[in-house]
Amino acid sequence: MTLTRRGALQALGAAAAGAALATPAEARTPHRSAPDDLGLLYDATRCIGCRACVTSCREANGEPRDVTMMAGAPYDAPVDLNGHTLTVIKQWSDGTRDGFVKAQCMHCADPACASVCMMGALHKGPRGVVEYSVDRCVGCRNCQIACPFNVPKFQWTSAAPQIAKCELCRHRWAAGKGPACAEVCPRQAVIAGPRSELLAEAHRRLAATPQAYQGGVYGETEGGGTACLYLSPAGFGPLGLPPLGREPAPALVESVQHGIYQGFVAPVVLFGAFAVMAWKNRAAGQGEEP
């Protein structure tokens, strides 16, 4: 009997140890971005806050306006990304300067939303775009919990709600068009293209006028790399971008879970051990004490 009891504790201990000891590098290879992944380069030093991108995004994606009453009149005034707003311009300030920052899906190389999505409604598609397929979505909103940028938004007021997020206007590709926001930007504050080219352009700008920028290129390594890159005159904290490390967001969870569930061996072994012990101790199941 002592043996069985010890065995039980050992089995449980092994599972716990699996959780504890697995390290990211062993358990999981992070996804990296490909050179021709489609992305955006947003340069906060160029943006003038005209919001042409917000308007053209609405039109390109057929999204209704987000109407708010202000001073007795209705305005299209989203305060954040929401169920019908896939990009938004916000104002930032670091105390001495202020400016604008555009928000939209960052199209991570290794997206947290796709990692947690139960049936793959959010998934990586061609050219690295994080796509959404509503037919596989149950509306659990785990993507919203997982996304470090708070990008996926839920249509709270709809009877058949969906998750809404930028998909880099992939429905326009067939017509030879790219993301609508980049198309209309009057100052090329946001440009679209292959990530490798955008990265090269970002570094060219940094090299040309190093005094104009602070903090390098956001998204080059942050969160395992994103297809949407940012340049800022004041670092990225004031712009509301989270200080992510080089590890992609899913690394920790997936490596812990992979550690535990590697090949589903541990659960099967544990089940066998439990079943055998339950059989051995079936007398206890009838209320008898050894």
């Binding site: 202000m70 305005y75 938004v88 916000k90 930032w92």
Partner: peptide, 8 residues
Amino acid sequence: APMAYPTV
């Protein structure tokens, strides 16, 4: 859009 912007 109004002239006012949402903040970060």
